[in-house]
Design a binder for these strands. Structure first.
Lengths: 216, 216
DNA sequence: ACCTGAACACCGTTCAAGT
DNA sequence: ACCTGAACACCGTTCAAGT
Protein backbone atom coordinates (compact mmCIF):
# COMPACT_ATOMS: atom_id res chain seq x y z
CA UNK A 1 0.00 0.00 0.00
CA UNK A 2 3.04 2.25 -0.48
CA UNK A 3 2.30 5.74 -1.78
CA UNK A 4 4.71 7.88 -3.84
CA UNK A 5 7.79 8.91 -1.92
CA UNK A 6 7.12 11.60 0.66
CA UNK A 7 9.07 14.82 0.23
CA UNK A 8 9.78 17.68 2.60
CA UNK A 9 8.13 20.01 0.10
CA UNK A 10 4.95 17.96 0.15
CA UNK A 11 4.85 17.98 3.92
CA UNK A 12 5.23 21.78 4.01
CA UNK A 13 2.58 22.26 1.33
CA UNK A 14 -0.01 20.15 3.12
CA UNK A 15 0.83 21.69 6.47
CA UNK A 16 0.46 25.21 5.06
CA UNK A 17 -2.91 24.28 3.57
CA UNK A 18 -4.10 22.98 6.94
CA UNK A 19 -3.04 26.17 8.69
CA UNK A 20 -4.60 28.43 6.08
CA UNK A 21 -7.91 26.63 6.26
CA UNK A 22 -8.30 25.76 9.93
CA UNK A 23 -5.65 27.68 11.81
CA UNK A 24 -2.45 26.52 13.49
CA UNK A 25 -4.19 24.47 16.19
CA UNK A 26 -5.57 22.21 13.49
CA UNK A 27 -2.05 21.28 12.50
CA UNK A 28 -1.40 18.18 14.57
CA UNK A 29 1.19 15.66 13.52
CA UNK A 30 -1.37 12.89 13.44
CA UNK A 31 -3.84 14.84 11.32
CA UNK A 32 -1.08 15.90 8.96
CA UNK A 33 0.01 12.28 8.62
CA UNK A 34 -3.55 11.24 7.84
CA UNK A 35 -3.80 13.99 5.23
CA UNK A 36 -0.55 12.83 3.65
CA UNK A 37 -1.42 9.13 3.87
CA UNK A 38 1.74 8.23 5.77
CA UNK A 39 2.74 7.16 9.24
CA UNK A 40 3.06 9.97 11.77
CA UNK A 41 6.69 9.19 12.31
CA UNK A 42 7.61 9.61 8.63
CA UNK A 43 6.99 13.33 8.99
CA UNK A 44 9.66 13.50 11.65
CA UNK A 45 12.25 12.22 9.27
CA UNK A 46 11.56 15.07 6.83
CA UNK A 47 11.01 18.05 9.10
CA UNK A 48 12.47 17.09 12.47
CA UNK A 49 9.57 17.92 14.75
CA UNK A 50 6.45 20.06 14.95
CA UNK A 51 8.36 23.12 16.08
CA UNK A 52 10.73 23.17 13.11
CA UNK A 53 7.83 22.40 10.80
CA UNK A 54 6.17 25.60 12.00
CA UNK A 55 9.48 27.42 11.64
CA UNK A 56 9.65 26.32 8.01
CA UNK A 57 6.09 27.53 7.35
CA UNK A 58 6.90 30.89 8.87
CA UNK A 59 10.07 31.15 6.81
CA UNK A 60 7.99 30.49 3.74
CA UNK A 61 5.53 33.24 4.61
CA UNK A 62 8.32 35.75 5.11
CA UNK A 63 9.73 34.82 1.71
CA UNK A 64 6.31 34.88 0.08
CA UNK A 65 5.65 38.52 0.94
CA UNK A 66 5.63 40.26 -2.38
CA UNK A 67 7.80 43.31 -2.94
CA UNK A 68 5.84 46.46 -2.39
CA UNK A 69 6.24 49.51 -4.60
CA UNK A 70 5.11 53.00 -3.60
CA UNK A 71 2.52 54.93 -5.60
CA UNK A 72 1.60 58.61 -5.58
CA UNK A 73 3.16 62.01 -6.13
CA UNK A 74 4.33 63.35 -2.81
CA UNK A 75 6.54 61.38 -0.39
CA UNK A 76 3.72 61.49 2.15
CA UNK A 77 1.27 59.98 -0.33
CA UNK A 78 3.81 57.33 -1.32
CA UNK A 79 4.40 56.40 2.30
CA UNK A 80 0.67 56.06 2.85
CA UNK A 81 0.43 53.86 -0.26
CA UNK A 82 3.12 51.54 1.12
CA UNK A 83 1.28 51.35 4.43
CA UNK A 84 -1.95 50.45 2.67
CA UNK A 85 -0.32 47.78 0.51
CA UNK A 86 1.37 46.34 3.56
CA UNK A 87 -1.91 46.15 5.43
CA UNK A 88 -3.49 44.43 2.45
CA UNK A 89 -0.79 41.78 2.17
CA UNK A 90 -0.86 41.05 5.89
CA UNK A 91 -4.62 40.68 5.94
CA UNK A 92 -4.48 38.18 3.08
CA UNK A 93 -2.75 35.56 5.28
CA UNK A 94 -3.89 36.19 8.85
CA UNK A 95 -3.00 32.83 10.39
CA UNK A 96 0.47 32.69 8.95
CA UNK A 97 1.15 36.31 9.83
CA UNK A 98 0.08 35.60 13.39
CA UNK A 99 2.59 32.76 13.43
CA UNK A 100 5.32 35.03 12.11
CA UNK A 101 4.42 37.47 14.86
CA UNK A 102 4.48 34.79 17.56
CA UNK A 103 7.90 33.70 16.46
CA UNK A 104 9.23 37.23 16.59
CA UNK A 105 10.07 37.49 12.90
CA UNK A 106 7.89 40.49 12.17
CA UNK A 107 10.99 42.61 11.68
CA UNK A 108 12.36 40.25 9.06
CA UNK A 109 9.07 40.17 7.22
CA UNK A 110 8.99 43.95 7.06
CA UNK A 111 12.39 44.51 5.62
CA UNK A 112 11.39 45.09 1.97
CA UNK A 113 8.72 47.55 3.06
CA UNK A 114 11.20 49.20 5.38
CA UNK A 115 13.54 49.79 2.46
CA UNK A 116 10.74 51.38 0.45
CA UNK A 117 9.76 53.59 3.36
CA UNK A 118 13.36 54.63 3.94
CA UNK A 119 13.65 55.83 0.39
CA UNK A 120 10.48 57.92 0.64
CA UNK A 121 11.45 59.45 3.96
CA UNK A 122 14.78 60.35 2.42
CA UNK A 123 12.97 61.95 -0.49
CA UNK A 124 10.94 63.94 2.02
CA UNK A 125 14.19 65.49 3.18
CA UNK A 126 14.73 63.70 6.48
CA UNK A 127 18.12 62.22 7.37
CA UNK A 128 19.77 59.91 9.88
CA UNK A 129 18.12 59.02 13.15
CA UNK A 130 15.12 61.26 12.54
CA UNK A 131 14.44 59.54 9.24
CA UNK A 132 14.81 56.14 10.89
CA UNK A 133 12.31 57.15 13.53
CA UNK A 134 9.73 57.96 10.89
CA UNK A 135 10.28 54.64 9.11
CA UNK A 136 9.82 52.75 12.35
CA UNK A 137 6.82 54.75 13.49
CA UNK A 138 5.00 53.96 10.25
CA UNK A 139 5.99 50.31 10.45
CA UNK A 140 4.70 49.94 14.01
CA UNK A 141 1.56 51.81 13.04
CA UNK A 142 0.81 49.32 10.27
CA UNK A 143 1.57 46.17 12.27
CA UNK A 144 -0.32 47.51 15.24
CA UNK A 145 -3.39 48.30 13.18
CA UNK A 146 -3.42 44.90 11.53
CA UNK A 147 -3.10 43.10 14.86
CA UNK A 148 -5.85 45.17 16.47
CA UNK A 149 -8.13 44.87 13.45
CA UNK A 150 -7.75 41.13 13.34
CA UNK A 151 -8.54 40.99 17.00
CA UNK A 152 -11.69 43.00 16.47
CA UNK A 153 -12.82 40.78 13.60
CA UNK A 154 -12.26 37.57 15.48
CA UNK A 155 -14.64 38.69 18.19
CA UNK A 156 -17.42 40.62 16.47
CA UNK A 157 -19.83 40.24 19.38
CA UNK A 158 -18.25 41.97 22.34
CA UNK A 159 -20.06 41.43 25.59
CA UNK A 160 -21.16 43.83 26.79
CA UNK A 161 -21.06 45.85 23.60
CA UNK A 162 -19.35 49.22 23.57
CA UNK A 163 -22.75 50.84 23.28
CA UNK A 164 -23.97 49.35 26.50
CA UNK A 165 -20.78 50.26 28.31
CA UNK A 166 -21.00 53.85 27.21
CA UNK A 167 -24.60 54.09 28.28
CA UNK A 168 -23.79 53.00 31.82
CA UNK A 169 -21.18 55.73 32.24
CA UNK A 170 -21.52 57.39 35.62
CA UNK A 171 -20.48 60.85 34.51
CA UNK A 172 -22.61 62.49 31.86
CA UNK A 173 -20.86 62.40 28.53
CA UNK A 174 -19.66 65.82 27.40
CA UNK A 175 -20.66 65.25 23.79
CA UNK A 176 -23.61 63.02 22.85
CA UNK A 177 -22.48 62.92 19.24
CA UNK A 178 -19.06 61.68 20.30
CA UNK A 179 -20.64 59.06 22.52
CA UNK A 180 -22.82 57.89 19.65
CA UNK A 181 -19.85 57.80 17.30
CA UNK A 182 -17.81 55.69 19.71
CA UNK A 183 -20.69 53.29 20.13
CA UNK A 184 -21.02 52.83 16.37
CA UNK A 185 -19.03 50.15 14.53
CA UNK A 186 -15.58 51.06 13.25
CA UNK A 187 -14.63 51.38 9.59
CA UNK A 188 -11.13 49.90 9.88
CA UNK A 189 -9.85 50.90 6.44
CA UNK A 190 -10.93 54.47 7.05
CA UNK A 191 -9.48 54.64 10.56
CA UNK A 192 -6.27 53.13 9.26
CA UNK A 193 -5.80 55.63 6.45
CA UNK A 194 -6.73 58.56 8.68
CA UNK A 195 -4.23 57.47 11.32
CA UNK A 196 -1.36 56.84 8.95
CA UNK A 197 -1.95 60.14 7.20
CA UNK A 198 -2.04 61.99 10.51
CA UNK A 199 1.09 60.22 11.71
CA UNK A 200 2.97 60.97 8.51
CA UNK A 201 1.83 64.59 8.54
CA UNK A 202 2.81 64.87 12.16
CA UNK A 203 6.24 63.40 11.51
CA UNK A 204 7.11 65.08 8.22
CA UNK A 205 5.36 68.37 8.91
CA UNK A 206 6.61 71.47 10.71
CA UNK A 207 5.86 70.00 14.13
CA UNK A 208 8.01 66.92 13.36
CA UNK A 209 9.62 64.76 16.06
CA UNK A 210 11.54 66.57 18.78
CA UNK A 211 14.35 64.13 19.54
CA UNK A 212 15.65 65.74 22.72
CA UNK A 213 12.56 66.41 24.80
CA UNK A 214 10.97 63.41 26.50
CA UNK A 215 8.33 64.96 28.76
CA UNK A 216 4.72 64.53 27.74
CA UNK B 1 -5.38 13.71 53.95
CA UNK B 2 -8.11 16.29 53.24
CA UNK B 3 -6.91 19.86 52.82
CA UNK B 4 -8.98 22.98 53.58
CA UNK B 5 -12.00 23.34 51.35
CA UNK B 6 -11.12 24.40 47.82
CA UNK B 7 -12.70 27.65 46.65
CA UNK B 8 -13.16 29.11 43.20
CA UNK B 9 -11.20 32.15 44.37
CA UNK B 10 -8.24 29.98 45.35
CA UNK B 11 -8.28 28.22 41.99
CA UNK B 12 -8.24 31.54 40.15
CA UNK B 13 -5.48 32.94 42.34
CA UNK B 14 -3.20 29.95 41.81
CA UNK B 15 -3.98 29.83 38.10
CA UNK B 16 -3.18 33.54 37.72
CA UNK B 17 0.12 33.05 39.55
CA UNK B 18 1.05 30.20 37.23
CA UNK B 19 0.29 32.30 34.14
CA UNK B 20 2.17 35.34 35.44
CA UNK B 21 5.26 33.29 36.19
CA UNK B 22 5.43 30.79 33.37
CA UNK B 23 2.93 31.89 30.75
CA UNK B 24 -0.42 30.41 29.73
CA UNK B 25 1.00 27.18 28.33
CA UNK B 26 2.22 26.29 31.83
CA UNK B 27 -1.36 26.36 33.03
CA UNK B 28 -2.40 22.73 32.65
CA UNK B 29 -5.21 21.29 34.71
CA UNK B 30 -2.95 18.62 36.12
CA UNK B 31 -0.23 21.04 37.14
CA UNK B 32 -2.78 23.38 38.66
CA UNK B 33 -4.24 20.50 40.64
CA UNK B 34 -0.80 19.56 41.89
CA UNK B 35 -0.17 23.16 42.92
CA UNK B 36 -3.49 23.23 44.77
CA UNK B 37 -3.03 19.80 46.32
CA UNK B 38 -6.33 18.46 45.01
CA UNK B 39 -7.53 16.00 42.42
CA UNK B 40 -7.62 17.33 38.86
CA UNK B 41 -11.32 16.79 38.66
CA UNK B 42 -12.08 18.98 41.68
CA UNK B 43 -11.08 22.02 39.65
CA UNK B 44 -13.78 21.21 37.15
CA UNK B 45 -16.44 21.47 39.81
CA UNK B 46 -15.37 25.05 40.63
CA UNK B 47 -14.56 26.54 37.24
CA UNK B 48 -16.23 24.29 34.68
CA UNK B 49 -13.31 23.64 32.35
CA UNK B 50 -9.99 25.08 31.25
CA UNK B 51 -11.60 27.44 28.77
CA UNK B 52 -13.84 29.12 31.31
CA UNK B 53 -10.99 29.22 33.79
CA UNK B 54 -9.04 31.28 31.28
CA UNK B 55 -12.12 33.40 30.68
CA UNK B 56 -12.28 34.15 34.39
CA UNK B 57 -8.60 35.12 34.49
CA UNK B 58 -9.09 37.45 31.57
CA UNK B 59 -12.15 38.99 33.20
CA UNK B 60 -10.06 39.62 36.28
CA UNK B 61 -7.35 41.35 34.29
CA UNK B 62 -9.87 43.63 32.63
CA UNK B 63 -11.26 44.54 36.05
CA UNK B 64 -7.80 44.97 37.55
CA UNK B 65 -6.78 47.70 35.12
CA UNK B 66 -6.50 50.75 37.28
CA UNK B 67 -8.33 53.93 36.34
CA UNK B 68 -6.05 56.23 34.44
CA UNK B 69 -6.05 59.97 34.97
CA UNK B 70 -4.57 62.45 32.50
CA UNK B 71 -1.75 64.80 33.45
CA UNK B 72 -0.43 67.92 31.77
CA UNK B 73 -1.60 71.34 30.65
CA UNK B 74 -2.70 71.11 27.03
CA UNK B 75 -5.18 68.51 25.75
CA UNK B 76 -2.43 67.11 23.52
CA UNK B 77 -0.10 66.65 26.48
CA UNK B 78 -2.89 65.08 28.52
CA UNK B 79 -3.69 62.64 25.72
CA UNK B 80 -0.03 61.67 25.49
CA UNK B 81 0.05 61.14 29.26
CA UNK B 82 -2.92 58.76 29.04
CA UNK B 83 -1.19 56.88 26.24
CA UNK B 84 1.99 56.52 28.30
CA UNK B 85 0.13 55.36 31.40
CA UNK B 86 -1.79 52.87 29.32
CA UNK B 87 1.40 51.48 27.83
CA UNK B 88 2.88 51.17 31.29
CA UNK B 89 -0.10 49.25 32.70
CA UNK B 90 -0.20 46.90 29.74
CA UNK B 91 3.48 46.12 29.95
CA UNK B 92 3.15 45.26 33.64
CA UNK B 93 1.11 42.12 32.85
CA UNK B 94 2.17 40.92 29.43
CA UNK B 95 0.90 37.34 29.56
CA UNK B 96 -2.52 38.28 30.84
CA UNK B 97 -2.83 41.14 28.36
CA UNK B 98 -1.95 38.74 25.57
CA UNK B 99 -4.76 36.50 26.77
CA UNK B 100 -7.18 39.41 26.83
CA UNK B 101 -6.09 40.17 23.28
CA UNK B 102 -6.51 36.58 22.13
CA UNK B 103 -10.00 36.51 23.53
CA UNK B 104 -10.93 39.71 21.74
CA UNK B 105 -11.64 41.73 24.86
CA UNK B 106 -9.13 44.46 24.18
CA UNK B 107 -11.97 46.90 23.57
CA UNK B 108 -13.52 46.18 26.93
CA UNK B 109 -10.21 46.60 28.70
CA UNK B 110 -9.71 49.97 27.11
CA UNK B 111 -12.99 51.51 28.03
CA UNK B 112 -11.86 53.59 31.02
CA UNK B 113 -8.96 54.97 29.02
CA UNK B 114 -11.31 55.61 26.11
CA UNK B 115 -13.47 57.76 28.37
CA UNK B 116 -10.48 59.78 29.51
CA UNK B 117 -9.33 60.26 25.93
CA UNK B 118 -12.81 61.30 24.84
CA UNK B 119 -12.86 64.05 27.44
CA UNK B 120 -9.50 65.41 26.32
CA UNK B 121 -10.37 65.32 22.66
CA UNK B 122 -13.54 67.20 23.51
CA UNK B 123 -11.49 69.76 25.41
CA UNK B 124 -9.32 70.13 22.31
CA UNK B 125 -12.41 71.30 20.47
CA UNK B 126 -13.23 68.26 18.36
CA UNK B 127 -16.79 66.93 18.16
CA UNK B 128 -18.76 63.92 16.95
CA UNK B 129 -17.29 61.41 14.52
CA UNK B 130 -14.05 63.37 14.10
CA UNK B 131 -13.49 63.30 17.84
CA UNK B 132 -14.27 59.59 17.95
CA UNK B 133 -11.75 58.96 15.21
CA UNK B 134 -9.02 60.63 17.25
CA UNK B 135 -9.90 58.58 20.34
CA UNK B 136 -9.74 55.38 18.36
CA UNK B 137 -6.57 56.27 16.50
CA UNK B 138 -4.75 56.88 19.77
CA UNK B 139 -6.16 53.68 21.25
CA UNK B 140 -5.00 51.56 18.31
CA UNK B 141 -1.67 53.32 18.39
CA UNK B 142 -1.11 52.33 22.02
CA UNK B 143 -2.25 48.71 21.66
CA UNK B 144 -0.31 48.32 18.46
CA UNK B 145 2.88 49.62 20.00
CA UNK B 146 2.58 47.40 23.04
CA UNK B 147 1.98 44.32 20.90
CA UNK B 148 4.89 45.08 18.60
CA UNK B 149 7.21 45.96 21.46
CA UNK B 150 6.46 42.75 23.28
CA UNK B 151 7.12 40.85 20.11
CA UNK B 152 10.49 42.53 19.74
CA UNK B 153 11.45 41.78 23.33
CA UNK B 154 10.50 38.14 23.13
CA UNK B 155 12.93 37.61 20.29
CA UNK B 156 15.94 39.81 20.98
CA UNK B 157 18.19 37.85 18.65
CA UNK B 158 16.72 38.16 15.19
CA UNK B 159 18.36 35.96 12.62
CA UNK B 160 19.70 37.42 10.50
CA UNK B 161 19.92 40.70 12.37
CA UNK B 162 18.58 43.87 10.81
CA UNK B 163 22.14 45.06 10.41
CA UNK B 164 23.10 42.11 8.29
CA UNK B 165 20.00 42.44 6.17
CA UNK B 166 20.64 46.07 5.50
CA UNK B 167 24.21 45.38 4.53
CA UNK B 168 23.19 42.88 1.89
CA UNK B 169 20.87 45.37 0.20
CA UNK B 170 21.24 45.21 -3.56
CA UNK B 171 20.63 48.90 -4.20
CA UNK B 172 23.02 51.31 -2.56
CA UNK B 173 21.38 53.02 0.38
CA UNK B 174 20.60 56.66 -0.25
CA UNK B 175 21.65 57.74 3.26
CA UNK B 176 24.36 55.87 5.18
CA UNK B 177 23.31 57.59 8.42
CA UNK B 178 19.74 56.37 7.95
CA UNK B 179 20.98 52.86 7.23
CA UNK B 180 23.07 52.94 10.38
CA UNK B 181 20.18 54.26 12.43
CA UNK B 182 17.87 51.53 11.20
CA UNK B 183 20.46 48.90 12.01
CA UNK B 184 20.84 50.20 15.58
CA UNK B 185 18.59 48.91 18.38
CA UNK B 186 15.29 50.68 19.00
CA UNK B 187 14.49 52.75 22.09
CA UNK B 188 10.84 51.72 22.40
CA UNK B 189 9.78 54.32 24.95
CA UNK B 190 11.20 57.07 22.79
CA UNK B 191 9.70 55.73 19.57
CA UNK B 192 6.38 55.39 21.33
CA UNK B 193 6.25 58.93 22.65
CA UNK B 194 7.44 60.38 19.35
CA UNK B 195 4.78 58.45 17.44
CA UNK B 196 1.92 59.31 19.78
CA UNK B 197 2.90 62.96 19.80
CA UNK B 198 3.10 63.06 16.02
CA UNK B 199 -0.23 61.28 15.70
CA UNK B 200 -1.93 63.63 18.13
CA UNK B 201 -0.40 66.68 16.46
CA UNK B 202 -1.44 65.35 13.09
CA UNK B 203 -4.99 64.74 14.26
CA UNK B 204 -5.58 67.83 16.36
CA UNK B 205 -3.50 70.19 14.27
CA UNK B 206 -4.46 72.24 11.21
CA UNK B 207 -4.01 69.29 8.86
CA UNK B 208 -6.42 67.15 10.93
CA UNK B 209 -8.32 64.17 9.52
CA UNK B 210 -10.11 64.67 6.23
CA UNK B 211 -13.22 62.51 6.65
CA UNK B 212 -14.46 62.62 3.09
CA UNK B 213 -11.43 61.87 0.95
CA UNK B 214 -10.20 58.28 0.89
CA UNK B 215 -7.50 58.30 -1.75
CA UNK B 216 -3.93 58.02 -0.53
C1' DA C 1 18.04 6.59 2.85
C1' DC C 2 13.49 6.27 4.14
C1' DC C 3 9.43 4.35 6.51
C1' DT C 4 6.92 1.85 10.20
C1' DG C 5 4.24 0.48 14.67
C1' DA C 6 4.72 0.21 19.45
C1' DA C 7 5.45 2.65 23.46
C1' DC C 8 6.07 6.66 26.57
C1' DA C 9 4.70 10.65 28.90
C1' DC C 10 1.84 13.96 28.53
C1' DC C 11 -2.99 16.52 27.61
C1' DG C 12 -8.49 17.95 28.69
C1' DT C 13 -12.68 15.95 29.89
C1' DT C 14 -16.45 12.72 31.48
C1' DC C 15 -18.58 9.93 34.69
C1' DA C 16 -19.97 6.86 38.16
C1' DA C 17 -19.03 6.51 42.81
C1' DG C 18 -18.03 8.23 47.12
C1' DT C 19 -18.88 11.44 51.47
C1' DA D 1 -22.56 20.20 47.96
C1' DC D 2 -18.14 18.82 47.10
C1' DC D 3 -14.39 15.56 45.99
C1' DT D 4 -12.29 11.36 43.96
C1' DG D 5 -9.92 7.76 40.71
C1' DA D 6 -10.56 5.36 36.58
C1' DA D 7 -11.12 5.70 31.88
C1' DC D 8 -11.36 7.85 27.23
C1' DA D 9 -9.64 10.12 23.37
C1' DC D 10 -6.43 12.89 22.24
C1' DC D 11 -1.34 15.03 21.96
C1' DG D 12 4.25 15.17 20.50
C1' DT D 13 8.18 12.39 20.48
C1' DT D 14 11.53 8.42 20.73
C1' DC D 15 13.26 4.22 19.23
C1' DA D 16 14.21 -0.27 17.64
C1' DA D 17 13.09 -2.63 13.70
C1' DG D 18 12.16 -3.04 9.05
C1' DT D 19 13.23 -2.33 3.72
Amino acid sequence: MARTALTREEVLETAAALVKQHGPTALTMRRLAAELGTAVTSIYWHVGNRESLLDALVERTVADLAAITPHGRTPAARIVSVARALRHELRARPHLVAMVHERGLTERMFLPAQRALAQEVHAAGLRGTRAAEVVRAVQVQVVGHVLVERNRERSPAQSPAETELWQTATTDPPDPALTRALAAPVDPERLFVTSVRALVNGLLGPHGPTPDRRDG
